[in-house]
Design a protein around this nucleic acid. Structure first.
Lengths: 207, 207
DNA sequence: GTGATGATACCGACCGAGTGGTACGGTTTC
DNA sequence: GAAACCGTACCACTCGGTCGGTATCATCAC
């Protein structure tokens, strides 16, 4: 069966399994150190299937970044941090949610596109662009709540877009320090500082 | 001539040139994508020389991380940001200095040990450990000034060590966003937020 | 002074194990 | 039966690493 139905492109197919294997293996070993053969073995497919779905290893990298963007997009869209009525509370709840996500092995809770961007930004511009779209696209989903909170508190100083990007910078930095030996604690610590920064920016109080 | 003199172990020698080539090439292409052959060609040495000085490619990675730690250590020790009499001003001057360092191609001003840690944390624990020592060792050099500033302003909330580590988290995150397409502007933006956080923490004023 | 010894630094051909990628045949689905 | 899907065998090449050999110099017995 090439495609189960027309509207659900590839559910559980070889392509899907390859993307999932790539997501996990690249997070653990990096892009260059992940070989096509290993990927096929992990996904339970043959090399013929790989190069049927992806023109090259680089094309898989781009697809993996896009897959990451859409799957995490769905995760965050359905997350409970959107519940609070107050926009600032929603932003702080987002940070708490990111903290809850930090558990298990390091590669399980760190970011695929951050890792890939750091590694291939010079050698594979196409992959780097896809990674950038995932990161800055996710940052953009925070912008509305931040802008609302700023308007509500009469703040204009750093732009909402800039502050949204900064949350991602801190998270990416937290991942690096965690991998450098800081572990989950380093991640939580960075989140604590980011939360304190935002609380200070918005006058320390709530609502 | 094996060694020019006894007290200067390897000045401009093959080992030194290999470490410098590794510093630049790994920052641009990552550790796994940097081959020993390319490294030798860039350093102008043969493969025999490489494996005379380093037992393996992994050993070179460890040595490169240590080399990065000592060379950047010397750079920051001699930097002008230590001049101000006020400790808080020294901390803020450090951030300004980090901003001044951001220029040219991305790989020229991003961090070797952050890049390597992100890539090899799972596959080469020895390299990851050396990277961690470089990062957290550098953070420790900021701790004294931060502690002094905190005492002077009567602040106890986040520990000086934690805040020092956070500066490095923000910097590493800034590098990731820059590589993901944000460029130098993303780096400067993150530094601006970090500076604002510290100013807010210390009561917005100076001295 | 001289020759033997040994250590350090380096050269470069070579090796087996992978590497990304291809060719092509077969099978399944519409 | 066309097209998508996938399996197998294979290819040229590159990878990290090895190994025998050489060149240079310090040391020291004689």
């Amino acid at each position: 069966m090439p495609r189960p139905t027309k509207q659900t492109p590839e559910r559980g197919s070889a392509r899907q399994r390859l993307l999932e294997a790539a997501r996990d293996m690249i997070r653990a070993k990096g892009f260059a150190a992940t070989s096509v053969d290993e990927l096929c073995a992990a996904a339970g497919v043959t090399k013929g299937a790989f190069f049927h779905h992806f023109a090259s290893k680089e094309a898989l990298g781009v697809a993996a970044a896009e897959f990451w963007g859409s799957s995490t997009g769905a995760l965050f869209a359905g997350a409970p941090y959107h519940a609070p009525a107050d926009p600032l509370e929603r932003v702080l709840a987002y940070l708490d949610f990111r903290g809850l996500l930090m558990g298990g092995e390091t590669w399980e809770w760190t970011c695929l596109v951050g890792t890939m961007a750091e590694e291939v930004h010079q050698t594979h511009p196409g992959i780097a662009r896809a990674c950038g779209e995932a990161i800055f696209g996710h940052a953009a989903t925070l912008e509305a709540d931040i802008a609302l909170a700023m308007a509500q508190h009469g703040i204009t100083e750093p732009s909402a877009a800039s502050l949204a990007r900064h949350t991602q910078a801190v998270l990416q930095g937290a991942f690096v320090l965690a991998k450098a030996g800081g572990g989950v604690e380093a991640g939580q610590e960075a989140l604590d500082h980011l939360r304190r920064y935002i609380e200070l920016l918005f006058g320390k109080g709530r609502s």
